Computed example of a mutant assay.
Amino acid sequence: MTGLRIESVVTSGVFTLDGGTWDVDNNVWVVGDDHEAVVIDPAHDAVAVAEAVGDRKLVAIVCTHAHNDHVNAAPALAAAIGAPILLHLDDRLLWKHTHSDRDPDGYLSDNQRIEVAGTDLRVLHTPGHTPGAICLYLPDLGTVFTGDTLFAGGPGATGRSYSHFPTIIRSIRDRLLVLPPATTVRTGHGADTTIGDEAPHLSTWIARGH
């Protein structure tokens, strides 16, 4: 795992769903070493993401969920570098909202491992924000990539199509809060947090749902 590291690229664009459009900044994550990498959630700007990968082998393009602002640059990045796009099967219909003419190259399942740079990313199926939302746990670096499932201060939004508040709370409780408290949470938008910092808020989140 020599040189294993996490890099980020912040890209800007729009999120569109249910007839609404919002300006957003997205965290795109690159995990790897000097030789190979995985990209998580290629948003808005395939050129900027490709530049971050550089001349490394891109093992996979992994989408934590299929909202357009997390997948819109995936096909262009795949075409430029030749890596497969991976998505959880339960978000295949949502994917079609953005890419009706191209399917992902493979579908992820819970507890699947994605190997890169001598380590692996463990897929955690965490539905609620979308049916096929996943997080990616990287124990070797004490990190979990949560997409839009968990942010600093609370869970991802559940007020739009394909989302469900009680389900996201169960996902956070059962799949994320069981991770070590020091685990760094790297989100799809905004600042990092830790599992330990977010755990005390669970009862408050539940109360807000009633």
Rank of each mutant, 00 (worst) to 15 (best):
56 R>H: 01
59 V>G: 00
59 V>Y: 07
61 I>G: 05
61 I>P: 12
64 T>M: 05
64 T>V: 02
66 A>C: 09
66 A>Q: 11
68 N>G: 13
69 D>W: 07
69 D>M: 11
70 H>K: 05
71 V>H: 03
71 V>Y: 00
71 V>N: 10
72 N>G: 05
72 N>E: 09
72 N>L: 01
73 A>C: 05
73 A>G: 10
73 A>N: 06
74 A>R: 02
75 P>D: 06
75 P>G: 01
75 P>Y: 03
76 A>M: 05
76 A>P: 09
76 A>K: 12
77 L>F: 08
77 L>A: 00
77 L>G: 08
78 A>M: 05
78 A>H: 07
79 A>M: 09
79 A>H: 11
79 A>C: 01
80 A>K: 12
80 A>N: 08
80 A>Y: 00
80 A>F: 03
80 A>S: 15
81 I>N: 08
81 I>F: 07
82 G>W: 07
84 P>C: 01
87 L>N: 05
88 H>S: 08
88 H>Q: 15
91 D>F: 00
92 R>G: 02
92 R>S: 12
93 L>P: 00
93 L>K: 13
93 L>S: 11
93 L>A: 14
94 L>W: 06
94 L>K: 05
96 K>G: 12
97 H>E: 15
98 T>H: 07
98 T>Y: 01
98 T>Q: 10
98 T>G: 06
103 D>F: 01
104 P>R: 02
105 D>N: 09
106 G>I: 04
107 Y>S: 08
108 L>Q: 08
108 L>P: 12
108 L>W: 05
108 L>I: 04
109 S>H: 15
109 S>K: 13
110 D>R: 12
110 D>T: 04
111 N>K: 14
111 N>T: 14
111 N>A: 13
112 Q>K: 14
112 Q>G: 07
113 R>M: 13
113 R>S: 13
113 R>N: 14
113 R>I: 10
113 R>A: 15
114 I>C: 06
115 E>P: 10
117 A>E: 10
118 G>Y: 08
118 G>T: 04
119 T>C: 11
123 V>M: 12
123 V>C: 01
125 H>S: 14
126 T>D: 11
126 T>Q: 03
126 T>Y: 04
127 P>V: 06
128 G>Q: 10
130 T>K: 08
130 T>C: 09
131 P>W: 03
131 P>I: 00
133 A>Q: 11
133 A>E: 15
134 I>N: 07
134 I>E: 00
135 C>Q: 02
135 C>K: 02
136 L>F: 00
136 L>V: 05
137 Y>F: 13
137 Y>I: 01
140 D>F: 04
143 T>F: 00
143 T>I: 09
145 F>N: 11
145 F>V: 02
148 D>M: 00
149 T>F: 05
150 L>E: 14
152 A>R: 13
152 A>W: 09
152 A>E: 15
153 G>A: 14
154 G>Q: 13
155 P>N: 13
156 G>H: 08
158 T>G: 12
158 T>A: 12
158 T>I: 00
158 T>P: 13
